[in-house]
Write a protein that binds this DNA or RNA. Structure first.
Length: 416
DNA sequence: TCTGGGGTCCTAGGACCC
DNA sequence: TCTGGGGTCCTAGGACCC
């Protein structure tokens, strides 16, 4: 048995923990630059606020119903997530943290899964203030189905174990609610008269394989109670690391762009060292505003390899700038840019070059010092001058809540 | 006026090897 | 008349997830 723990409307719930008066009120959290809706409370969903929708299109709705909006505060959400999963994973032999708000738990050997889950849910709510739902079944995909039901049940827990019951539910589950069926597949499937999960199970497996390749086929088998996706314990090394941003004010100046690219490269390097790992290649991309069809459009992408896999900010930034020079075209207004590191390998598996002349020991010490100072005193206390001296990163976040749990100056004061 | 950020996996096709 | 068989690696593109 596998249990899926899912935090309800997670970002909204995090904001509510510190603002209990928002309970039962419509609330939403916005993406960077306060652009799109990325989390909604049930009340906001009921009002018709859609996921991913640009908020400026909904100004009237927001005003009319007094929907409370927040800028995204990932420092807060990340910390609350850690607290939730600390509690959830206690006394569980194996678990996999799947995303910031979801985890799969190994429920084998638990005598009464339903009661256990009900207790777990109460405990998490009491200790963190976050409401969760728990779906339990035979495979990961089925536990996702159970999770879907759990969200609608008053107890917040659903235990799917009876074959007849599973079959009934799959008969009512729309295909696009299945884990692994996105918009494209849903459209394709409906064209062939496949509307429910049960319809899909009745299809020929060769046909499914052709339509949705092996991943789709595995998913279908999982719905038939055959397990294909194992619990992945421990955090495995990432395969790529990306830092990208949309600019609140479009960029049309090379120096400005090179400062941003330098900043993205630094951020990527920090994440890379945090693994700890090195990267074999880097790529840089940038593009103009696709929502302004009348403006001149351009998009550029360029990738380069390091001579020797690198993790130090200086080497990485230098190559990022090389890439930038290859693709930068003047005369355009850029809306978004980013840096991606790939070919990630563990630090201790770097193949050195015979003619390598770099002083690695020195650069390692330098980076350790840099990370330590920035870790203790705040991000970017020490940085490369190529990322700009007075370049205060301008991400529109007008409705940002305090970092209640991760910043000393933001801790709540309580009048007793 | 205003439209996010960060990941994963699979496949087909091309280029290459012996 | 008639031109093999078995591999690897890389990339772009397409799908998905949160």
């Amino acid at each position: 048995m596998i249990a899926l723990v899912d935090c309800n409307n997670f970002y909204v719930s995090c904001e509510r923990v510190f603002r209990p008066h928002l309970e039962n009120k419509p609330v939403a959290v916005l993406s960077n630059n306060d652009g799109c809706v990325i989390a909604r409370s049930n009340e906001s969903k009921a009002l018709g606020l859609k996921m991913g929708e640009p908020i400026f299109k909904k100004r009237e709705l927001v005003r009319k119903h007094n929907i409370q909006l927040f800028s995204s505060n990932f420092a807060l959400y990340g910390d609350i997530s850690k607290r939730v999963f600390d509690i959830v994973s206690r006394n569980i032999p194996a678990y996999e943290i799947y995303s910031i708000d979801e985890a799969f738990l190994d429920f084998r050997g638990i005598k009464d899964p339903y009661t256990f889950a009900v207790h777990l849910r109460k405990k998490v709510k009491k200790c963190t203030g976050i409401p969760i739902s728990i779906g339990i079944s035979y495979t990961k995909t089925l536990s996702k189905v159970a999770g879907y039901l759990a969200k609608k049940s008053p107890e917040g827990v659903s235990y799917l174990h009876d074959k007849k019951q599973i079959s009934d539910i799959l008969g009512r589950l729309p295909v696009d609610e299945i884990w692994g069926v996105g918009m494209r597949y849903a459209i394709k499937l409906k064209k062939y008269g496949v509307h429910t999960a049960k319809n899909l199970l009745e299809c020929d497996e060769t046909w499914i394989r052709k339509m949705m390749n092996v991943v789709g086929l595995r998913m279908v088998r999982e719905l038939k109670c055959m397990s294909h996706f194992n619990l992945e314990e421990g955090r495995s090394m990432r395969k790529s690391i990306c830092t990208s941003r949309s600019f609140s004010v479009e960029v049309s100046d090379y120096t400005q762009m090179s400062e941003y690219i330098s900043m993205f490269a630094s951020r990527c390097s920090e994440k890379l060292r945090g693994e700890p790992a090195c990267a074999r290649s880097i790529s840089v991309f940038m593009y103009t505003n696709r929502f302004k069809p009348k403006a001149r459009q351009y998009s550029g992408y360029f990738s380069m390899d390091f001579h020797t896999a690198a993790s130090d900010t200086i080497t990485i930034t230098k190559l990022a700038i090389e890439c930038l020079k290859k693709i930068y075209r003047s005369g355009y207004s850029y809306k978004k840019a980013g840096v991606t590191l790939s070919g990630i390998i563990p630090r201790n598996q770097v193949q050195l070059s015979l003619f390598d002349s770099a002083d690695r020991k020195k650069s390692d010490t330098l980076m350790q010092t840099l990370d330590k100072i920035n870790g203790n005193m705040g991000r970017d206390i020490l940085k490369l001058s190529s990322s700009g001296i007075n370049n205060k990163w301008k991400i529109g976040k007008e409705r940002l809540s305090p970092c209640y749990t991760t910043r000393w100056s933001d801790i709540l004061s309580i009048r007793v």
